[in-house]
Computed example of a mutant assay.
Amino acid sequence: MHRRNFLFASLAASVAPMALRAQSYEVSRSEAEWRAMLTPAEFNVMRDQGTERAGSSPLDKVYAEGTYHCRGCDLALYPSSTKYDSGTGWPSFYAALPDAVGTAVDKSLFQTRTEVHCRRCGSHLGHIFSDGPAPTGQRHCLNGVSLVFRAA
């Protein structure tokens, strides 16, 4: 392996996914169990803190009344009433349901961001930014593959 490729691979392996797995969650599964229940794209985002391509999630354009649940454990996370079109290409919300999500500091990609995850199973959902609408001013920028929409 070339030195440059080795350095990039080492850096990628050392970032946030280890922090995600270091915590204990109410719903826990082995890596093999997660891989068996999730597609490779879902596993990449939810367990390895990847990001889906902008504009690739059909949930970005869903504005029906209902609730968005965690794909990993089915916990209700976000009401449709807090969803808005951020223009980013990812489903965006200005607030989660009470006691639904947790946050962590994400220092990957040479910047500091607020990572948001399911509080029950630890699945990575996306990031929270401070450029959202009132009343919170937050933008919960989420990966659609981490979510399941249930219409009301």
Rank of each mutant, 00 (worst) to 15 (best):
A76M: 09
A76E: 03
A76K: 07
A76P: 09
A76I: 00
A76Y: 02
L77I: 05
L77T: 07
Y78C: 06
P79T: 10
P79Y: 02
P79S: 09
P79K: 11
P79R: 08
S80Q: 07
S80Y: 09
S81W: 06
S81A: 12
T82V: 10
T82H: 02
T82R: 00
K83G: 04
K83L: 06
K83A: 14
K83S: 13
K83H: 09
K83Y: 11
Y84E: 04
Y84Q: 12
Y84W: 04
Y84G: 01
Y84F: 12
Y84D: 03
D85G: 10
S86E: 03
G87Y: 02
G87P: 02
G87E: 05
G87N: 01
G87L: 01
T88C: 12
G89E: 08
W90A: 04
W90C: 07
W90L: 07
W90M: 03
P91E: 05
P91G: 08
P91L: 10
S92Q: 06
S92G: 05
S92H: 04
F93N: 09
F93L: 10
F93I: 11
F93R: 06
Y94N: 11
Y94L: 09
Y94C: 09
A95S: 14
A95Y: 04
A95H: 03
A95E: 12
A96P: 06
A96Q: 09
A96S: 13
A96D: 13
L97D: 05
L97Y: 03
L97M: 11
L97K: 07
P98S: 01
P98R: 01
P98E: 03
P98V: 00
P98D: 06
D99Y: 10
D99F: 13
D99T: 07
A100K: 00
A100G: 05
A100S: 05
V101A: 05
V101D: 04
G102R: 13
T103H: 11
T103N: 08
T103D: 08
A104F: 12
A104P: 00
V105W: 00
V105R: 10
D106N: 11
D106T: 08
K107V: 15
K107Q: 15
K107E: 15
K107P: 15
K107N: 15
K107F: 14
K107R: 15
S108T: 08
S108E: 00
S108I: 08
S108H: 07
L109D: 14
L109A: 15
L109K: 14
F110M: 15
F110G: 14
F110L: 11
F110N: 15
F110A: 15
F110H: 15
Q111A: 14
Q111I: 15
Q111D: 11
Q111S: 13
Q111L: 12
Q111P: 02
T112D: 14
R113E: 11
R113S: 12
R113A: 14
R113P: 06
R113K: 15
R113F: 12
R113D: 10
T114V: 05
T114D: 02
T114R: 00
E115A: 13
E115S: 12
E115V: 07
E115Q: 10
V116R: 01
V116P: 04
V116N: 03
H117M: 11
H117D: 02
H117G: 06
H117C: 07
H117I: 09
